[in-house]
């Protein structure tokens, strides 16, 4: 295999990994956009989504699409519940209190799931006939196509909701200026709740896809992808939706290229080096404008 072929194969690998990062990063960025909170429990919501998908496939014997929808709905509701119980009472508290609460919620989700589903990793059943498609020397398999397809559909749907619907308009208004939006008659709490719901549903989709793609899930599976998705969100510009999508894909591709052409041991180092570089040189990220924060 010559260099170009290897490069294209690595791009395919990187985009399928990056799609997952993008789905999780979208939730991070939406929640940050609306209440300026880095929701560190987001990676664990993704894990809960994977488990709900797992149980709807193994116990309710559903196929992949209904399981994905059930998982998204249930996890979305869980996200709203978490917001209501953990973050809403802290709406006017200092930002650090909310951040610490988010870390607490993260541990709560990890260890509660560990109690109920046991820490032993579970094997995701093969729900999807995984055919490898050969395009000349390149190989894309059915699961990778599924990931591309579902990620694409969800991103289009999200863009539509945010840009074209009334709720999306209200979300943008609350994100821009919460108090003024309330003065205009927007129920900010309801909009924040919906944002958590949508963000969590996207993470759940990521969780189910990872389960199908990599075949194995466990209660601590959300920690690393959660951190990587955070890097992706910062890379794209936190609070900006297209930023999260592009940031996720770029991060996935960079990881694949570093493993493929430099050394597999530098892969995680590269991801976090990106975080440091972005924070040093362009803290607002690729899509961010350099604005001074209001004090």
């Amino acid at each position: 295999m010559d260099f170009m072929q290897q490069l294209v194969q690595q791009l395919i690998n990187g985009i399928s990994l990056g799609s997952i990062y993008a789905l999780i990063a979208l939730g991070y960025t939406m929640i940050y956009g609306i209440i300026k909170l880095i929701n560190f429990a987001h990676g664990d919501i993704y894990m809960v989504g994977a488990y709900i998908g797992y149980f709807s496939i193994t116990m309710a014997h559903l196929s992949i699409v209904p399981s994905l929808i059930i998982s998204m709905v249930v996890t979305g509701l869980l996200g709203m519940l978490i917001e209501r119980l953990a973050y809403k009472p802290l709406r006017h508290a200092p930002r650090i209190s909310v951040l610490i609460t988010a870390i607490g919620v993260s541990f709560f989700l990890e260890y509660t799931s560990m109690y109920f589903v046991s820490p032993t990793p579970r094997t995701f059943p093969a729900v999807f006939d995984n055919i490898a498609y050969h395009f000349g020397p390149f190989i894309i398999n059915g699961q990778q196509m599924l990931i591309f397809g579902i990620t694409f559909i969800l991103m289009v749907a999200l863009t539509y909701i945010v840009q074209r619907t009334k709720i999306g308009k209200a979300m943008r208004a609350v994100s821009f200026d919460t108090e003024t939006a309330q003065l205009m008659g927007i129920d900010a709490n309801r909009i924040i709740s919906i944002t958590f719901g949508i963000g969590s549903a996207l993470a759940a989709a990521g969780g189910v896809l990872v389960g199908v793609y990599y075949n194995s899930i466990d209660p601590l599976m959300g920690i690393m992808p959660g951190l990587k998705a955070f890097v992706a969100a910062v890379l794209g510009g936190i609070g900006i939706l297209p930023g999260a999508m592009v940031g996720g894909l770029i991060l996935g591709v960079i990881e694949a290229l570093v493993s493929g052409f430099v050394s597999s041991t530098f892969r995680d180092a590269a991801a976090f080096a990106i975080l440091i570089l972005v924070l040093l040189f362009k803290p607002s990220g690729i899509f961010g404008k350099n604005t001074r924060e209001k004090v």
């Binding site: 290897q6 690998n13 601590l220 690393m224 992808p225 990881e255 493929g260 597999s264 892969r267």
Partner: peptide
């Protein structure tokens, strides 16, 4: 000689390299 970390999910990038 390549390496991965425990709990890694994606090995395709490195495997593509090993394939060469």
């Amino acid at each position: 000689e390549e390496a991965f970390l425990q709990k890694d999910q994606d090995f395709k990038a490195t495997l593509t390299k090993l394939k060469t």
